[in-house]
């Protein structure tokens, strides 16, 4: 029997979660589609369901512990309206589905759904964002990249919920408008159409160049492998080199990192297209960095 729970506090929710393992439903935009039934029948949920949207404790955006923290039930459009949100995340959220869906969908839900093509993931991973998981027993913070292990799979335990998504303020400041001339942020969604689209791939790149040197560089690619790929080893090779050499060094190392980009053919696009486009977007990013006046 599928039960529906409607906790009124986070504590009640956690107690229910540990007792019943009910599936958390916030915006419902993924779950309602995944378990869609014949029109006018309730969805075919595989187990009990627990609504979270009503929990005021999960609706907030605030700065704490050197992080910009976004409550787990906050809808994407509420996040988009907040001026403190880093540009990379705002760009990604703004292109997810359509306004009506973004009024329901939560950022935490997009993470928990763990689709390889989830558009919020490349920027979150570039920003080294983490999720705070809470249970009746306590809480733990995990980088988003470690939280997701495979398509549709996360390390979320049966008694846990995503309490918040946390973006390091150090990154927010680094990418801040005042640093704009020194930092470059690219978010690019290659979708099936210009709006209300699912991604063939999406990428987020960040670089901070100062005094002719690459101080920081980060590259994340979505929908090109089973989970979002962050090219950490490539980033290490490029950090600290002079901007003028960037393109040359990139060319010499990029073959080593292409292996991480191993997309599939599906009805939405082809492995060839995804791979070539991902690499071309990377090349384009590097060459733009090199061409920058501050470089």
């Amino acid at each position: 029997m599928v039960e529906f729970y409607y906790p009124e506090t986070l504590n009640e929710a956690l107690e229910l979660r540990s007792r019943t393992g009910a599936l958390p439903l916030t915006g419902g935009t993924d779950l309602m589609v995944r378990y869609e039934n014949w029109s006018s029948l309730p969805p075919r949920f595989p187990g009990s369901i627990m609504a979270l949207k009503q929990l005021n404790e999960l609706h907030y955006i605030r700065e704490e512990d050197d992080c910009l923290c976004i409550g787990g039930a906050t809808a994407m459009n509420r996040i988009l309206e907040d001026p403190r949100i880093p540009e990379a995340l705002a760009l990604a959220l703004d292109e997810i589905a359509a306004p009506s869906l973004r009024n329901l969908a939560s950022l935490a839900g997009n993470i928990q759904n763990a689709s390889p093509a989830a558009d919020s993931l490349p920027p979150l991973i570039v920003m080294d964002a983490s999720v705070r998981l809470v249970s009746s027993a306590g809480s733990r913070d995990l980088p988003v990249q470690e939280f997701i292990t495979a398509p549709g799979r996360t390390v979320l335990q049966q008694d846990e919920l995503i309490e918040s998504v946390r973006i390091p303020l150090s990154f927010v400041r680094q990418a801040d408008a005042r640093q704009a001339e020194k930092s470059t942020i690219v978010y690019r969604k290659v979708g099936t159409r210009k709006a209300n689209a699912l991604s063939k791939l999406s990428v987020c790149f960040f670089a901070h160049c100062e005094d002719g040197e690459v101080k920081d560089i980060r590259m994340a690619l979505g929908a090109v492998a089973a989970t979002v790929v962050r090219l950490q080893k490539a980033e290490e090779k490029l950090k600290g080199i002079s901007c003028g050499e960037l393109e040359t060094v990139w060319k010499s190392v990029k073959r080593d990192f292409e292996k991480a980009v191993r997309p599939i053919d599906d009805q939405r696009s082809t492995a060839f297209y995804r791979k070539r486009t991902a690499l071309r977007l990377l090349d384009d990013f590097i060459s733009r960095l090199q061409d920058q006046p501050s470089a």
């Binding site: 409607y6 309602m32 369901i49 869906l101």
Partner: peptide, 24 residues
């Protein structure tokens, strides 16, 4: 939730009513 034909306003925000369990 793809076509928007079921759009309504919920607390003043446009949403797809096909994606909302009434219990929420």
């Amino acid at each position: 939730g793809e076509c928007g034909a079921c759009s309504i306003l919920l607390d003043g925000e446009v949403v797809n009513s096909c994606l909302i369990p009434v219990g929420t």
